[in-house]
Amino acid sequence: MKPRRFPWFSYLLVAVGALIMVVPFLDMVFTSFKGPGEFGRLPYRFLPEDFDFANYGAAFSQLDMPRLFANSILMTGVAVFSTLLTASLAGYALAKLRFRGRAVLFRFVLATMMFPPFLFLIPNFLILANWPGAGGNDLFGAGGYGGLLTTYAALFMPFLVSGFGVFLMRQFVVAIPDEILEAARIDGAGELRIWWSIVVPQTKAALITLGLLTFVNVWNEYIWTLLVSTVNPDLMTLPVGIQLLQSYLDPNLTQPIVMAGLVISTLPVLLVFLLLQKYYIRGMMLSGLK
């Protein structure tokens, strides 16, 4: 093969594109340091006059940040844990255990992925509000104070299981050689033990991938958490809180403070993503090749 020319056009294209991707984020960071009255002053200036952390202080004092973080961490933590547990168990069952109805159930799991989440927004809201036996409800789900909707459970209930997660884990478990599992069975190991000591370690990378995908999705979830925290403000998560900053404050001064809030809420995900990027990217690619 003859040596290729230097791809200057490709570099130009990618670099200009990258600039469009990155400049908005830089604008967010720089605006978060701008002083009162500095935002909105014409002509426009990209850099702040000096790097003043006052807006970060303001974001912290206007919002109950520890609570927002705690709620976001609780919601995301439970959702990730539960998604991994259920997907791994179900994936193992669908990949390696022989039982009647397996093919049908696998199709069912595939079918669940077809339904877009917005379809469930209204019914799930009503189902949690009328949850039998919770929040003062009677056994028919009536009469109480919001059922599960006013409790922390409302945050993560709709995110406990992922159809895509089950599918993904099943695809990875299929690749484990049957001989290993069979040998363990002959040694007298129960299925739960096989799952824990063979399937889980063998699919560790896939679990990290799925965990990361779930983490990013749930941490960034906005509409469901907005509804839940409208019902009970104690359940507010970071994205909802930051959005609320706008209506709390004097509009002339808010922009830089909102930007500071955005930096605070974006940073944890960004760090996790940059650290575990390869797992995340692999997950995205797999989701593309199904």
Binding site: T86, A90, F108, P158, E191
Partner: peptide, 25 residues
């Protein structure tokens, strides 16, 4: 034994889809 284990492993997932997929639909 496998069939029993399979249903056991699948039960949380199926229960969830019953409550948060079939019922809402």
């Amino acid at each position: 034994r496998q069939a029993w284990a399979a249903w056991f492993f699948l039960s949380p997932t199926l229960l969830f889809f019953g409550i948060f997929l079939v019922l809402p639909l």
